[in-house]
Amino acid sequence: MTRDDQILKAAEELFYQRSFDGVGVDEIGQAAGVSGSAIYRHFEGKNEILETLFDRAVDALLMGLPDPNDHPHDELRELIDSFVQFAQTNRMLASIWEREHRSLREPYRRRHQRRLRQYVERWVDCLSKCYPGWAEGRLLVAIRAAQALMMSDATRPGRGSSRDVGGLLSAMALRSFEVLDSPPRSDTQLGM
C-alpha cells in the first residue's frame, strides 16, 4: 500500500466515524502513521483528500455502469442494482460521499460535479425512455430520492447489514419509480 493509499484509508475511516469537519490533518497523519505535516507532501490538504475519496466513489459508480440496453426498464433495473452494489460494498466511502457534499470546496466541488454529470445523465436518459413526458428536473428529484433510499443501509451507523438487504433496496427503488407511470401533474395536484 502506498503512502497516499494509507492516508486515504485513514481519512476514509475517520471521516466515516466522525465527519469531515470533525477530523484534523494531524489526526489523519497519526492514523496513517505519519506526521500531520507529512500529509502535505502527498495532498494539498484535507479538501484534496476528500476530493480524492469522491473521485474514488465516482470511479466506482462509472465502472459499475451496465452496458446500454435496448430495453429501458431492464437497464433501469441494472442501474439500480449497480448503485445498490456500490453502496453495499463501499459502505464507508458511500456514506462519506452521501453526507459530505457540502464539505467539498471549490475548485474540487465543480470538478466533482462535472465528473458526476456523466453518471447522472445516464440515469436521466434511461428514465426518460421508461417514463416519457417528465421534465428533467422532476426526473432528477426522483433519482436523488431513489438513490437516498438505496444508500439508506450503507449510511446507517453500525457494522454490516443482512445479506438480503441489497435485493430489498433494489426492489423498493424500482417500485419507487413506478409513480412516474402516471402522466406528469402539477405540484398542487401532487399535494405539494
Rank of each mutant, 00 (worst) to 15 (best):
T52K: 08
I80K: 03
Y108T: 12
H71P: 00
V34T: 07
L65T: 02
F43T: 02
T89W: 08
L53V: 11
E48S: 13
D67M: 02
L61I: 11
Q85M: 09
L76R: 05
S35T: 12
A60I: 12
L65H: 02
V58A: 12
Q85E: 13
L79N: 03
L61W: 10
P107I: 04
E98N: 12
A57C: 13
E51N: 15
Y108I: 13
M92L: 10
D74M: 02
A31F: 00
P72H: 05
L50H: 08
E100C: 09
S35A: 09
P66L: 03
A32S: 06
I49G: 02
E51C: 12
N47E: 14
L79G: 04
F86P: 13
F86K: 11
Q85D: 14
H71W: 02
L76W: 02
E98V: 12
M63A: 15
E78W: 04
A32K: 01
L61A: 10
M63G: 10
L93F: 07
G64N: 10
A38F: 03
S35C: 01
I80R: 03
R99S: 12
R105N: 08
P66A: 03
I80L: 07
A32M: 03
R91F: 07
P68Y: 00
F54T: 08
E44S: 09
F43A: 01
I80Q: 01
A60G: 13
R102I: 05
V58N: 14
L53N: 08
P107E: 04
A60L: 15
P107M: 04
S103C: 11
Y108E: 14
D74Q: 06
D70Q: 04
M63S: 13
I80V: 15
A87I: 12
E100Q: 14
R102E: 06
P107H: 05
Q88K: 10
R91Y: 07
A94V: 10
L93R: 04
P72M: 04
N90A: 09
T89I: 09
E75N: 00
N47A: 15
I80S: 04
R41M: 09
L76E: 03
A94T: 11
F86N: 11
F86G: 10
E98S: 14
H73K: 05
L61V: 09
A94R: 08
K46D: 06
K46G: 07
N69C: 11
R77C: 01
V58T: 15
I39C: 00
H73G: 00
R99K: 13
R41Q: 12
